[in-house]
Design a protein around this nucleic acid. Sequence first.
DNA 1: TCTTGCTTCTCTAGTCGCTAGAGATTGTAG
DNA 2: CTACAATCTCTAGCGACTAGAGAAGCAAGA
Lengths: 154, 154
Amino acid sequence: MTTPAPVLLPIGQMADATGVKVPTIRYYEQIGLLPTPPRSQGNRRLYPESAIQRLRFIRHARELGFEIDAIRQLLDMADQPDQSCADADSIARHHLADIQSKIARLNALGDEVRRMIVDCSQSSVRQCRVIQVLADHGQCLGDHLAEPIKINEK
Amino acid sequence: MTTPAPVLLPIGQMADATGVKVPTIRYYEQIGLLPTPPRSQGNRRLYPESAIQRLRFIRHARELGFEIDAIRQLLDMADQPDQSCADADSIARHHLADIQSKIARLNALGDEVRRMIVDCSQSSVRQCRVIQVLADHGQCLGDHLAEPIKINEK
DNA sequence: TCTTGCTTCTCTAGTCGCTAGAGATTGTAG
DNA sequence: CTACAATCTCTAGCGACTAGAGAAGCAAGA
């Protein structure tokens, strides 16, 4: 009566099972997001099936735009199911607020860029509305754009 | 009858005049976005007033979210006022499309995150909707989210 | 003249979340 | 035995800056 050998997956099958690329999995290990898995005799990573869940959790959170640090905290919470989930809620709310402010900013940008394009006479650069507006901030409606001089909206 | 000495500004005054930080101005020079200015005897950069216009152009374009490469092209066009502005128009249109797709993606993310939060029972992690949804992609409405596995929406 | 303090200089390294590539090794199928 | 695939480690690159060290220049006040 032997215990059944646990199923262990090489990194490529982990990638297939989760949709996370192989180098990314190694990267997550490197930054401490995934625990270091056991290795084969030939030094290959061999993951227990439980690692699939964890990696899917990470992938899903990344798809929803959570930052790595937030995911780290969420994973810690998921590991302690008896604790309060207020912190998880708070992280998600902060993230939502972040998303909303990015949307607002992008809407403002979009309006401005659309105006430039619509007004463009489609002739020479000399009369080009796009170039003119860029050259002279005064022609731009949105001074609100300039308020946070940070432009990391990507 | 001597020609009047041209007004030359040190980098700090350029920063004040344009709202672009000093290290950023040097960075723009380094990547070839701003021409290298003449230097004083003590090796300080001294900018002609015309550089203010160029730097303002750059800043405004960055505020509107244009990438450095696009700005490089727009600046080239602005320097050739007799050419057609079709390219400038095209760059702006591409940028607008980019903004719109980012907004669409962020709206989808926002919806999903909002659902997680609303459903959260605010009790223990074990019942936490936020954690549950992250752990199980199947509970998520948005399979569309997964389509482009790239998650560089920031 | 000396000193204090501000500005500027160059250079390197860090940010975030990966991605790409080199070059070596291991495992597997024919 | 030989291909070939998968994996290993390590380093460097992306974009658009930002931060910091350490040195040098410069103007005003004592």
